[in-house]
Write a protein that binds this DNA or RNA. Structure first.
Length: 931
RNA sequence: AGGCGUGUAGCUCAGUUGGUUAGAGCAUGCGCUUGAUAAGCGCAGGGUCACUGGUUCAACUCCAGUCACGCCUACCA
């Protein structure tokens, strides 16, 4: 007789090999056709809400691994909250407007020979372009296992969104936040537009720095020495600034005198080759009376004290052009200087009406371009030439520094004062309110609060107008005098119009038509004669989502559909983005929501770090060329499968940098296999188990099963706490270590004997199967937020599973806990196990035994502190054939070859083999089982 | 340049209010098993806790500074 056939050996169709790349798309298909997301939402409709609001990625290009990380983290949260029984809808969004798309589209149109497209045509092409990438990214996000309302995302280009954005804007206009001002803004010359702070990136740059002589009025051959790295701003010079805390001197070199900060004189002397010079100190009064003649313009200016003048570089005198820098602007305003910016939209020097023409730059300079080509610009060259001709150039050298660049054209930006719309941050103590509101929000990690506070406290007024076509129009008009008109009611009417026709209507209709459509009934102001062609900063788009999404989508309403219980019910529970969004979306959302809705749009803000490579160096999206493989989500999903990518995301503490490397993902793949095998082992031993018929009540479970369930209950508590605190790496560590230690190396190993050799329906085997059933159900659920595909796949194999998909299920905590006696016993058992295992290893090394079942263990303990059943438990725990404990004084532990013969069926060494004539080669226990 | 972070075994993480030889899992090496088998079990090796200095009887833990990396900011005139 083949006794192997009488064993209850494991069997399952849950494959050992994951084949994720092949299997996941099939499961995805299944989810879609079963309308899984909709089913889950319907089932949770009346449950407590959990609102995670998606920050919209930009609708351009493939999904980057960093973007994938963000989406996966959000999905883990959503799936976890759903598992806990909450209603956690996920409404993805896309940021659709903006320069990158317009840039691409314009390029394509130029290539196609369309050079004279009007705004409406360009906008239509941009719309098509954005939607194309939304579709692409949607497919890639779905492939990651992210469940959500993918058929109804929010898009900032939707007319309903645009209308709500304008309504929020109208509220802010009505409250007096918005003003027209002439201030220096970042200007991109190739893009011909003002830029927001967030559209500026810093890059190394070599500037031509010059030391220039400014002749002092009334003192022959005496000069103030200034330093600048932007010679083209010299035509706009209207002052110099000095620091009252520094000691200035007049250095006499030959027959010339140079005034500068004493501390920088030696460096200056070295640059200019001054070997013999004398210095005379200047008093504060001397400085305050300094007047100078502009080196090449016909005007006289003076020196002003200013704190921002530093002593480390330059000369201690700062060249001030109020139209070309923020400090310069402030100093100019404080001293009633004109905000003079003699530069046109093309980035060329030009006369401006701020000063009489005769006081402006020489005619030869007009029209010279500031834009650098190969490190040189015509404007700089023209100014340098003029300085040389006039012997005003003391020294010239290259200066390496980090300088702001346009994020699109990658060219150095310029500061340029021009008329723009601004949101006044200090309006009605708004900045203080914003800071106070920040304290009401929970920031994770907690240092985020410093980041955003710093950003809000130091930020200048918000320049919100853009001279671009692909954006939401600013519904402003011009009166016959050319004065701009921005009125809240007009904006609201425009919003209604745009809600009906889309924002293209603003570009398609004439000013007169628009005016007749949006003019308020009780209007008594001037009549409009022209419309504004400016669009809103894209940060207003995404920053308005509190109004356009949180307050709009019924799925997010916290009480019965369509009704809100309280004023604050619209606030999201969580926003989750990269830490760069402290200056970006977190801030724009906060400011707009506070100004327009009266509160921050979020209760908790979670932040994750950035992707770095194996050497912890950044991998930026624009530097992909430097890497062999594109850093797209797809590249990794295609190779490892989404679940391994998801496990990798969960495995790391995302609050600091996230290492993305092949090595790391491979390691995670190993962990994945460990988890999968554990699930497979559990499932494979439940093939004949029906929980409805065979479940054993807690108090009748064997000690071993009670122990593992007790451990499991502790694990659950820890894992849930980690999920609640968004510490998914702790979830990963706890789960993978539990599976490796408590399960794989102890419990799973030990229970093989009873599962395989006990009679199929024996109480002991059913007890263990009851435990396994609870373990595998609980594990699948705890893993489900992370291993979205695999947990669901395993779930399908669980007998008597309560729901079709694990993602529909509700988590029920394991309540079993051991009583104090049991706990004490297990401490004792584990201590002895730790002692016995090394002895078994020694016996193995000595070739006394092979596997543990070949062994007999005998040891002596000082007093009787065990019961017979406990020694049997310990025997099981170390998996030997015999274990004998005796009371005595000596502390001995002996491992020897087990007595008797090896049972052919259970492989235990037993002394009762041969007693049964029908089954002469198996032990008594097996005889019973076989019969 | 400034602000905010990060830096513990090859990898990912623990390390409670400073207190014995710094832990875990994975990976590696060596063995065992062959009734989870492209699986399972055991044992072993592996760390100047980024660096330097200080406080203390005692520091991975507190303080100061340095270095590296990341994010952010900046008018470098």
């Amino acid at each position: 007789m083949e006794y192997k056939d009488t064993l209850n050996l494991p069997r399952t169709d849950f494959a050992m090999k994951a084949d994720l790349v092949m299997r996941e798309p099939q499961r995805l298909e299944k989810w879609t056709s079963a309308k899984l997301y909709e089913k889950i939402q319907a089932a949770r409709a009346c449950k407590e809400k959990f609102v995670l609001h998606d920050g919209p990625p930009f609708a351009n290009g493939d999904v980057h691994v960093g973007t994938a990380l963000n989406k996966i983290l959000k999905d883990i949260i959503i799936k976890y909250q759903t598992l806990r029984g909450k209603s956690a809808p996920y409404i993805p969004g896309w940021d659709c407007h903006g320069l990158p798309i317009e840039f691409k589209v314009s390029q394509e149109m130029r290539k196609a020979g369309e050079t004279n497209a009007d705004a409406a045509t360009i906008r239509k092409a941009c719309d098509v372009y954005a939607r194309k990438y939304i579709d692409l990214q949607r497919t890639q996000f779905k492939r990651l296992g992210v469940l959500g309302d993918w058929d109804h995302p929010y898009l900032t280009l939707n007319k309903e969104y645009e209308a709500d954005e304008l309504r929020l804007f109208a509220d802010i206009v009505a409250k007096g936040f918005v003003y027209r001002g002439k201030k220096p803004v970042y200007w991109s010359i190739p893009c011909r537009t003002a830029l927001a702070e967030a559209e500026v990136e810093y890059a190394d740059h070599v500037s031509q720095s010059v030391f220039v002589k400014f002749p002092v009025v009334g003192q022959l051959k005496t000069f103030i020495v200034i330093w600048t790295t932007t010679p083209w701003t010299l035509p706009a010079n209207l002052a110099v600034a000095y620091n009252e805390k520094l000691q200035y001197v007049a250095a006499t070199v030959g027959d010339e005198k140079f005034i500068l900060f004493r501390g920088l004189l030696p460096a200056m002397a070295e640059k200019c080759g001054w070997t013999n010079y004398t210095e005379t100190p200047l008093s504060l009064e001397d400085l305050s009376q300094l007047k100078y003649k502009h080196p090449f313009c016909n005007r006289i200016s003076r020196a002003y004290p200013a704190d921002f003048v530093t002593s480390d570089t330059g000369t201690g005198f700062v060249h001030i052009a109020p139209g070309h820098g923020l400090d310069d602007y402030n100093l100019g305003r404080a001293n009633s200087l004109p905000i003079y910016s003699p530069v046109n939209d093309d980035g060329a020097l030009a006369y401006s009406n701020e000063l009489p023409v005769e006081q402006q730059m020489p005619a030869e300079m007009v029209g010279k371009s500031i834009l650098e080509k190969h490190g040189k610009s015509d404007a700089n060259e023209a100014v340098l030439h003029e300085l040389r001709v006039r012997h005003a150039l003391l020294h010239q050298e290259n200066y390496h520094h980090s300088y702001p660049h346009c994020w699109r054209s990658k060219t150095p930006i310029i500061f340029r004062a021009m008329d723009q719309w601004f949101i006044k941050i200090d309006h009605d103590k708004f900045r203080e309110q914003a800071v106070a509101e920040i304290d009401r929000v929970k920031w994770i990690p907690d240092w985020g609060v410093n980041r955003i506070k710093g950003a809000v406290q130091s930020r200048p007024d918000w320049c919100i107008s853009r001279q671009r076509t692909w954006g939401v129009p600013i519904p402003a008009f011009y009166d016959p005098k050319g004065e701009p008109m921005l009125d809240a009611q007009i904006v609201r009417n425009a919003a209604d119009l745009i809600e009906k026709h889309g924002s293209n209507v603003w570009f398609e209709k004439s000013a007169a038509e628009l005016w007749s459509l949006v003019k308020p009934k009780d209007w008594n102001g001037a009549e409009a004669v022209a419309k504004s062609n400016d669009t809103l900063d894209v940060w207003i788009d995404s920053g308005s989502s509190s109004r356009a999404v949180l307050m709009r989508r019924k799925e997010f309403f916290k009480s019965e559909i369509g009704n809100r219980k309280s004023e604050m019910d619209w606030q999201a529970d969580v926003y989750l983005e990269g830490s760069d969004q402290h200056r970006g979306w977190f801030q724009s959302s906060l400011l707009l929501s506070l100004a327009g809705n009266g509160a921050a749009p979020f209760k908790t803000v979670l932040t994750h770090g950035f992707m770095v490579d194996a050497d912890r160096e950044k991998i930026s999206k624009s530097k992909q060329g430097a890497y062999e493989k594109p850093q797209t989500a797809e590249a990794y999903v295609k190779k490892y499968g989404a679940d391994v990518v998801r496990l990798w995301v969960a495995s790391q503490d995302y609050r600091s940098d996230i290492v993305v490397s092949e090595e790391r993902i491979n390691k995670v793949g190993e962990t994945y296999r460990g988890i999968r095998n554990a699930l497979r082992y559990q499932l494979s031993n439940l093939y004949d188990f029906d929980p409805a018929k065979h479940s054993v009540p807690d108090d009748q479970l064997t000690g071993l099963d009670r122990w593992i369930l007790g451990e499991f209950a502790k694990l659950e508590a820890e894992v849930l706490a980690a999920y609640d605190q968004y510490e998914f790496h702790v979830v990963y560590q706890k789960l993978s270590q539990f599976i490796a230690v408590e399960l794989s190396s102890v419990y799973h190993d030990v229970i093989k004997d009873r599962l395989y050799t006990d009679a199929a329906n024996s109480p002991r085997r059913r007890s263990t199967q009851t435990a396994l059933h609870r373990l595998v159900s609980g594990l699948c659920q705890m893993l489900a937020p992370i291993l979205a595909f695999t947990a669901d796949e395993a779930w399908e194999f669980i007998p008597g599973k309560p729901t079709g998909s694990v993602h529909e299920s509700e988590f029920k905590q394991c309540t079993l806990s051991l009583d104090p006696d049991e706990i004490g016993k297990w401490v004792w058992l584990k201590q002895w196990r730790e002692k016995i295992l090394p002895e078994l290893e020694k016996a193995r090394q000595a070739k006394t035994i092979g596997k543990a079942l070949d062994a007999k263990v005998e040891f002596v303990v000082p007093q009787v502190q065990w019961q017979l059943s406990d020694s049997e438990l310990l025997r099981e725990l170390v998996n030997v054939s015999a274990l004998k404990i005796t009371a005595g004084e000596t502390d001995s532990l002996v491992v020897s070859k087990a007595d008797g013969q090896k049972c052919e069926r259970c492989w235990h060494w037993k002394t009762d083999i041969g007693q049964n004539t029908e089954h002469p080669t198996i032990c008594g226990r097996c005889v019973e089982a076989v019969n």
